[in-house]
């Protein structure tokens, strides 16, 4: 079954992110996927080793073994993994960054004109779709993700891990088309970060077919926030599809709406 993210992609065509960002906010967020002029977070050699190492994660986990095998594939030696100052954490971090940057290609929303009037997808629904797509990107390595979480929880890596989580939340709001710069800016990102990490942990234990329980868990958390946090009310429902056909297609695919 195709995940809903890909589905919406094929149904609605391509959404181009218009990059209206207030200059002040742009300054403090340098890692948006649209800002490709930024230097990549890893050097070319480090990227080559990490890209190969990632392919060994399903079999060997986020370990120095995966790194060494990756170095070998890239034409380097075992010892060359010393190029990664933080070792296996760099491997975890690489996965996080690459998947965050891939999000904008994995999920593309239709523009308002392409959509027509009947099928307007609200920001809340877009946030849900993007969050789900990012979670689904963990599928191939989900059986190794608890290892990764343990590495991220090491005291010296916590700040970087949290910063990356914040960047993901920011990226999701941005791709969903949220351009508001009011006081809810931080709350939105904080609550999405909390929801994302809770769901991610849930997913490591989810044995349901095609992670349907993870999807349900995510929806329940999003609803909690809508109910408790009045500040998000203005966004409308998280799943406010006005296009009935889209809703029905998603329902038939097992999405609980």
């Amino acid at each position: 079954m195709a995940p809903p993210a890909r589905l919406s992609n094929s149904i609605f065509g391509i959404f181009r992110a218009t990059s209206f960002r207030p200059a002040l906010l742009r300054k403090c967020r340098l890692y948006h996927s649209y800002e490709y002029s930024q230097p990549p977070p890893f050097s070319a050699t480090a990227s080559a080793i990490l890209a190969s190492a990632i392919t060994h994660v399903p079999s060997y986990g986020f370990t120095s073994t995966a790194l060494k095998l990756g170095a070998g594939d890239a034409g380097y030696l075992d010892v060359s993994t010393n190029l990664l100052p933080r070792g296996v954490f760099d491997l975890v971090n690489y996965h996080l960054i690459m998947q965050r940057l891939a999000l904008k290609d994995n999920v593309q929303f239709p523009s308002a004109s392409e959509q027509g009037t009947a099928k307007k997808l609200g920001i809340g629904a877009k946030v849900r779709t993007l969050t789900l797509a990012r979670l689904r990107a963990n599928e191939p390595i989900i059986h190794r993700w608890q290892e990764a979480l343990a590495i991220m929880a090491q005291p010296s890596y916590v700040p970087t891990s949290l910063a990356e989580l914040a960047r993901l939340a920011d990226e999701i709001w941005f791709l969903a088309g949220d351009t508001s710069v009011d006081t809810s800016w931080y709350t939105k990102r904080a609550s999405l970060s909390a929801i994302y990490s809770a769901t991610e942990i849930f997913m490591t234990q989810d044995t349901s077919k095609d992670f349907t329980e993870t999807e349900q868990f995510l929806d329940a958390r999003l609803e909690d926030v809508t109910r408790i946090g009045g500040f998000l009310g203005a966004l409308g429902e998280w799943v406010d599809y006005t296009g009935h056909s889209a809703v029905n297609v998603l329902r038939s695919k097992g999405v609980r709406i």
Partner: peptide
């Protein structure tokens, strides 16, 4: 410890390149 010297024989791909 940080240099982590040594090759794990379980994951060494070629037997010829043994050890550092």
């Amino acid at each position: 410890r940080n240099l982590n010297p040594g090759r794990n024989p379980l994951t060494s791909l070629s037997a010829s390149e043994r050890g550092w």
